[in-house]
Simulated scan of single mutants.
Amino acid sequence: MDAPRTTDPAATEAADSKPKFIRSRGLRFPYDTRIINRKRRALLHSDTYELKESEAVLSQIRPDDRVIELGAGMGYMSTLMARHLKVRDIHAFEANPAMIPYIRAVHAFNGVDTVRVHNALLGETAGEVTFYVRGDFVASSMADNLGDKHGGVIARETVPVRPVAEAFTEIRPTALVCDIEGAEQHLIPLMDLSMLRVAILELHPQVFGQDGTRRVFDAMAAAGLTYFPRASQGKVVTFRRGW
């Protein structure tokens, strides 16, 4: 007869306290239900989370690029670039202060130390804005008129705005990765795009319509960046300097 099993309370507590992860593309993401809801969990498990943007980034970003990422989200793209592409110089901007500890945790758990995380927005001039944190952290934004959607507003935070010209002069990026929920129509024309080799954007025409889309394309064309269809899918568009 087998000896009866004994339970070591200390061992049980240690096992229960171990962080749980969702794995995606070989990367590890702490399972925080405020950030990873059922839909995101399924997408992460199937390696289809931000699929179009991921494919563009993996095919177009180079290890020697200096990347500026606007809208860092849960740290997915910056971790993907650092781990899979070995990019050594990434500046990730995220407005939502509730996401910053999670992004840093994602980087730490994946051994990423080449990303500088900025809790700030870029704009024309320096200042501050009110940011509305929602129960679903990823759905937080500067909009205060969404009612109880996405878990409702659970906090109001003051977020600094940095002049975009200052940030570009300081970082001198060669690559831009941008997903900022429609603000790109105003921000892209303010940028000095002349230093970029490539730009990968998720457009939001449902927010700004045809006029906003045209403003983005016109700004890219004026800077010598051409729409690159082979690395574009739907609302994710890529612009390159030279083919």
Rank of each mutant, 00 (worst) to 15 (best):
V129E: 13
T174I: 04
V153N: 01
C178S: 03
F228C: 13
E128S: 10
H150L: 04
T6P: 12
P63F: 08
N37L: 07
T33C: 00
G234T: 10
C178Q: 08
V87A: 05
D32L: 09
F208S: 11
G242V: 05
I171P: 14
P163G: 05
L51T: 15
L43P: 13
R156L: 11
S54L: 04
R83T: 13
A155R: 08
L201Q: 08
A11R: 11
G127H: 12
A167T: 09
Y31I: 13
P63T: 10
V153R: 03
A231T: 07
R230N: 12
S54D: 01
E94L: 03
A143E: 14
A167L: 14
D2H: 07
D65M: 03
I100G: 01
R214C: 10
L225G: 02
G147T: 05
R23N: 14
Q210L: 14
E13P: 01
L225Y: 01
L80A: 03
E157Q: 09
D64C: 10
K18I: 11
V153M: 07
L203Y: 05
R62V: 01
P4E: 05
R41F: 10
S46T: 15
D192C: 05
V67T: 09
R214Q: 12
H45Y: 15
G75H: 06
R25Y: 10
S59K: 12
L187M: 13
K149W: 00
T169K: 15
A95V: 05
T12C: 09
E53Q: 09
A223C: 07
V236E: 00
L203S: 07
Q185T: 13
K39F: 11
V115L: 06
L43G: 05
D64T: 08
K39H: 12
T130E: 11
S140N: 05
L187Y: 14
K235A: 15
G123E: 00
V153I: 06
I171E: 05
F239M: 02
L193T: 03
A139R: 03
A139K: 02
Y102W: 01
D148V: 06
F29K: 02
L121S: 02
V159K: 03
H204P: 15
T7M: 13
D211R: 15
G26M: 09
